[in-house]
């Protein structure tokens, strides 16, 4: 599903430049659930941005579902983001003046899906995350966990190939974190490829594979025994 080879990325700040990614080689198969770990400054967010076509690498190759992601113009990048990827962010990033339902139907709007079908689909995904009753509520009327679940529903709405989650539990307490992870695990069980960026060990162990980043290179890549979030919550 994802193949990256010898990926380099530097940021230019004023006179100096910061070499963030120093040759990343990484592959993920369909249906995998990978945790990307690392301390702050290790380059994990940069890697996720590149994987999410929000940013572009300076060097190296990146294939997403066998499509080369290189020198895309804004238009095609937008199309790929919409078709291939679903995003979940630490700070939820919901549009605050739109209801939960409208937030979820946003990617479908940009796919050109007609209003009626859009609402139907969005409702389906809201139901999937258990928030069908909250469809008309604004984000400000939802709890953190609910907001993140709306964000997950939105990420799923366009039926992407890969779900990218950037610290999805970073702003949530432990109980809520586990609930959200349980939801993500459920989605993975249905066959979706998921990449989770996190710095929390317990969250990382709820994935099937942990990749450790340090100073812009991968220092370890291990298959782990997945911990069920549901069981963890009951302990």
């Amino acid at each position: 599903m994802i193949q990256i080879k010898d990926l380099h990325k530097s940021y230019h700040m004023g006179s100096g430049s910061l070499h963030v990614l120093k040759g990343i080689n990484f592959e993920a198969q369909e249906g995998e659930m990978v945790a990307i770990m690392g301390s702050s400054g290790s380059g994990k967010s940069t890697l996720l941005n590149i994987l999410g076509i929000l940013d572009e690498a300076d060097q190296g190759s990146y294939f997403l579902d066998n499509v080369p992601i290189k020198d895309l113009n804004e238009k095609i990048a937008a199309k790929y983001r919409n078709e291939f990827l679903g995003f979940v962010f630490q700070s939820f990033n919901l549009i605050n003046y739109k209801s939960a339902l409208d937030n979820v139907s946003m990617p479908l709007y940009y796919q050109g899906v007609k209003r009626k079908l859009r609402t139907e689909k969005a409702m389906h995904y809201l139901d999937k995350v258990g928030l069908a009753d909250w469809a008309t509520h604004l984000p400000s009327e939802l709890s953190g966990g609910q907001k993140q679940r709306v964000a997950i529903a939105r990420a799923l709405a366009s039926n992407p190939k890969v779900l990218l989650a950037d610290e999805p539990t970073g702003a949530l307490d432990t109980t809520t974190s586990y609930e959200v992870m349980e939801l993500i695990q459920g989605i993975n069980d249905e066959g979706k490829t998921i990449l989770v960026v996190t710095h929390e060990e317990d969250i990382a162990h709820m994935c099937k594979r942990i990749v450790n980043l340090k100073d812009g290179i991968i220092i370890s890549d291990t298959i782990v025994q997945q911990v069920s979030a549901k069981q963890q919550a009951n302990v």
Binding site: K75, A78, R81, E83, F87, I95, M106, S158
Partner: peptide, 16 residues
């Protein structure tokens, strides 16, 4: 800005 960023991440074209 943030909203526009979100929209772009969700696949909004610059023209839209």
């Amino acid at each position: 800005t943030k909203e526009i960023g979100i929209r772009k991440a969700l696949g909004a074209l610059p023209s839209s």
